[in-house]
Design a protein around this nucleic acid. Structure first.
Length: 473
RNA sequence: GGCGCAUUCGUCUAGGGGUUUAGGACGCUGCCCUCUCAAGGCAGAGAUCACCGGUUCGAAUCCGGUAUGCGCUACCA
């Protein structure tokens, strides 16, 4: 237990959280829970242009859905603008940053030119030594930004908990913006100020941030602050091995919820994207993951997201649910997909066990069970015969109906005992014989076991369907 | 272009000098079970550990280079 561990998940509400974001949140949360530390939620809403309405709510909901509770926050950077500005101006006053009045047009033109000349793009430090005659807002038609006065030489060494020592030449760093002309801080400024103020001990974020870490280390030094420990997590890639994004299909976490992935399966699966317990353990409860999670066992290499494996794992979790719980969790999906049907919880509880091991995601349950609810089955009569002659199929149905009329208790065992011998009489194997009945009763060629299905369906519905099948032939 | 990171079966990964004929999982194929579909069981294919050199009695494991991939290179995060 290390109560001094303070970590944060700091998403920007510029879109809905995707698997990568959630994995980052998860690792921070796991680390906090493992160490007995504190998990803080901070919304980095400093980009007014890319802000997406409602994204914060989705982020919060997603964390809650996955069971990742936070101890402090959410804090909003947009509510702390004055403070960032003060810190920015403080650096200007100390000569560690400066106002820049370059217009975006000049900056764009400069970049174009640099690219044309095959030079590394970057700010040309035009305003770095303007002097003091022009300082602050109001002195120019152009609202200025504050830029960091990056050292021109030397090296910045960062020690990453996952990657070890990484060395950057300061000369490759440009004078990045700290405070934008709209008064909002950039990520670099706000992030450092907040991490310091919130006493963050470990910064765990995706590897895409590794390149900007020297800037952050330099900023901490400029403020005279002790930087936190850094751990850059491996990226999660799409099947084409590029950074996960919308074009890879379902990436937003609530899409997975809507498809019927279980949060516990998502936790388990995501925990294994860049972390492992040992050489064989894969299915773990959240408690087990928390107990065993350490940064030492986080891998360095980017992971391609394997949707098929997630689906498999979700199936494992679905099968491990109690029948009651499975039934309860199916309800919303079934109701939504079959809006015209009356879905009684009691009936659903009878149906559920028949499809539990056949579903990999909850959203496919409605397709598996809809025939339990419909009054009239729609199917191609050709399915009824399968490979049998029409006359044979008719005979199968007639004999079954007769046998069933003598059944006292509508129980799967009794029905099977009465019907199975009928196949022999027609010199048919059980497979083809039951096949006819299956289509008659369910309208499809694949279904849960026939007699259990018929028992749940009930006598009236089954008899009606068998007779209806006869009519079709 | 510059800088950085990475590189073990198609994918997720174990392994960190001899215990490895490189282990597990998903997926795939086959067989078994079986009233269909699943689930389950068993088996199989699949990795010269990116490549080249070096260190060493010995390298997937250590070092160097090359290649490739990815990331960053914004008044985005």
């Amino acid at each position: 237990m290390d109560a001094s561990v303070r970590v944060r998940f700091a998403p920007s509400p510029t879109g809905y959280p995707h698997l990568g974001n959630v994995r980052t949140a998860l690792f921070n949360w796991l680390f906090a829970r493992h160490t007995g530390g504190t998990f803080i939620l901070r919304i980095e809403d400093t980009d007014q242009a890319r802000k997406v309405e409602g994204a914060v709510e989705v982020i919060l909901n997603s964390l809650q859905w996955m069971g990742m509770d936070w101890d402090e926050g959410p804090f909003y950077q947009s509510q702390r603008l004055d403070m960032y500005r003060e810190y920015g101006e403080k650096l200007v006053n100390e000569g560690k940053a400066y106002y820049c009045y370059c217009s975006s047009e000049r900056l764009d033109a400069m970049r174009q030119e640099q690219i044309k000349l095959k030079q590394p793009p970057g700010y040309d430090r035009h305003c770095r030594d303007l002097g003091h005659e022009k300082t602050g807002w109001g002195d120019s038609a152009v609202a200025p930004v504050i830029r960091f006065r990056s050292p021109l030489e030397g090296k910045t060494v960062i020690t990453d908990l996952i990657r070890g020592e990484v060395i950057f030449e300061n000369s490759t760093l440009d004078d990045f913006v700290l405070l934008k002309s709209d008064g909002y801080p950039t990520y670099h400024l706000a992030n450092i100020v907040d991490d310091h103020q919130m006493q963050i001990s470990h910064v765990m974020r995706a590897e895409e941030w590794l390149s900007s870490t020297p800037r952050h280390v330099l900023l901490y030094a400029a403020f005279g602050w002790q930087p936190p420990r850094f751990a850059h997590l491996p990226m999660i890639l799409g099947p084409d091995k590029s950074k996960l994004s919308k074009r890879h299909g379902a990436t937003s976490i609530d899409e997975y919820r809507d498809k019927g992935y279980l949060p516990e399966a998502m936790i388990n699966f995501l925990s294994l994207l860049g972390w492992s317990l040992d050489d064989k353990t894969e299915i773990m409860t959240c408690e087990e993951i928390i107990k065993n999670f350490t940064i030492e066992r986080v891998s360095k290499t980017a992971a391609v997201f394997n949707a098929a494996k997630l689906e498999w794992m979700n199936g494992v979790y679905i099968r491990n649910l109690s029948p009651q719980e499975f039934s309860d969790r199916c309800m919303p999906f079934v109701k939504q997909a079959l809006p015209d049907m009356v879905i009684e919880p009691g009936y659903m509880q009878q149906i559920a066990p028949l499809v539990q091991e056949r579903a990999r995601v909850l959203a496919e349950v409605p397709d598996l069970v809809d025939f339990f609810f419909s009054d009239k089955l729609e199917y191609d009569s050709a399915l009824l015969c399968g490979k049998l002659e029409r006359a044979q199929a008719v005979e199968v149905l007639n004999r079954t109906i007769r046998a069933l009329e003598n059944i006292h208790e509508w129980l799967a065992g009794d029905m099977e005992a009465a019907i199975r011998p009928l196949a022999e009489g027609l010199e048919l194997k059980a497979g083809p014989f039951f096949g006819v009945l299956r289509v008659a009763v369910t309208g499809r060629t694949a279904s849960p076991p026939l007699f259990e299905t018929m028992e749940v369906l009930g006598r009236d519905r089954c008899m009606a369907r068998l007779k209806a099948a006869l009519q079709k032939l």
